[in-house]
């Protein structure tokens, strides 16, 4: 059993080494906190900002998207704790060390989904029964029933943790390093219908405009005691939303006029920077995927 954990070791060492190297490189610098928080309206912008500033923004976007999705799918299909741990270490290494994202910010991005994961898995972990059971890990009497943790439910929970965390970190590797318009252009190359891509592009732009408008309206309402008690805040929130709807509806008309004035005929085209594929990166990706497959095969059936 122990021998299987040795498979994970190289990647744990890679991650630790990378973090130490990063700390060494940034020694003596003051830690800046940029005020990104968990505030929702701005959280959308946080991921976007990180993606623009990422140290691996110059990698080929298709490469990043494909690698993330392959790792993500492999994590879910293999359903193996060892493979998940390898993927977690590798993707964290790529995002934090190569992408040069502060570990603090990365951790902050992970907390909300992780808390959700922990709570969600508790429901799967525990079972309720009216009668006590033997041959289980835990059997706690609570009032007049029993809370039971069985070997199977613990197994399922541990696997769920590993799978979800691995999948999440693989997805973050993509979203924290690839700008959204690049993701869209990758989708376009993958022959997703043009209309869908257009909608994505325009919805994406509208989200930022609306989030900004909503923020300002909320501030205006709040400074006029619009959220002073519960009843008022419901009313303010409702009217903010409906006003947002009306304003944006009018604005979408202007947007369309502006686009049409610039010869829009059903396709938005953006200038994209050429980001050539790097043979070294492909080799690295193939190496990691091959290693994951190897570990999966070697540790199966235990």
């Amino acid at each position: 059993m122990v021998i299987h954990w040795l498979w994970v070791l190289p990647f744990v060492l890679l991650l630790i080494g990378g973090l130490i190297y990063k700390a060494y490189r940034h020694r003596g610098e003051h830690h800046h906190h940029h005020g990104f928080g968990h505030k929702h309206g701005e959280a959308t912008i946080a991921v976007d900002t990180y993606a623009y500033h990422s140290g691996i923004a110059h990698w080929n976007p298709a490469f990043k998207v494909v690698l993330s999705i392959v790792l993500l799918l492999f994590c879910v299909i293999s359903d193996s704790v060892e493979v998940s741990l390898i993927i977690i270490c590798f993707t964290t290494f790529v995002t934090v060390v190569l992408g040069d994202l502060s570990f603090h910010h990365y951790f902050e991005m992970l907390t909300i989904p992780l808390v959700f994961l922990i709570v969600g898995s508790v429901i799967i972990l525990i079972n309720f029964s009216w009668t006590p059971m033997t041959n289980v890990i835990l059997c706690l009497p609570v009032f007049n029933f029993f809370v039971i943790i069985t070997h199977d439910s613990l197994y399922v929970t541990v696997h769920l943790w590993a799978r979800a965390f691995g999948a999440l970190s693989a997805m973050y590797m993509m979203s924290l390093s690839t700008m959204s318009n690049e993701i869209f252009s990758v989708l376009r190359k993958a022959h997703v219908p043009a209309l869908l891509i257009e909608l994505m592009n325009m919805i994406y732009r509208n989200i930022f405009i609306m989030a900004d408008t909503q923020n300002r309206m909320r501030n205006a309402a709040e400074s006029r005691l619009g959220y002073v008690d519960y009843r008022t805040s419901l009313k303010s929130f409702g009217s903010t939303i409906s006003n947002l709807f009306i304003v944006s509806l009018k604005r979408s008309g202007h947007l369309f006029d502006a686009m049409e004035a610039r010869c829009y005929d059903g396709e938005l085209l953006f200038l994209e920077t050429e980001k050539p594929l790097n043979a070294k990166l492909i080799l690295m990706a193939l190496g990691v995927v091959a290693y994951c497959v190897l570990v999966w095969v070697m540790t199966r059936g235990v």
Partner: peptide, 17 residues
């Protein structure tokens, strides 16, 4: 097109507020 795109953004905003 513009209206539908706006509606999508609207759904995103109200479901993340």
């Amino acid at each position: 097109m513009a209206i539908i795109a706006m509606c999508g953004a609207f759904i995103f905003i109200i479901s993340s507020l």
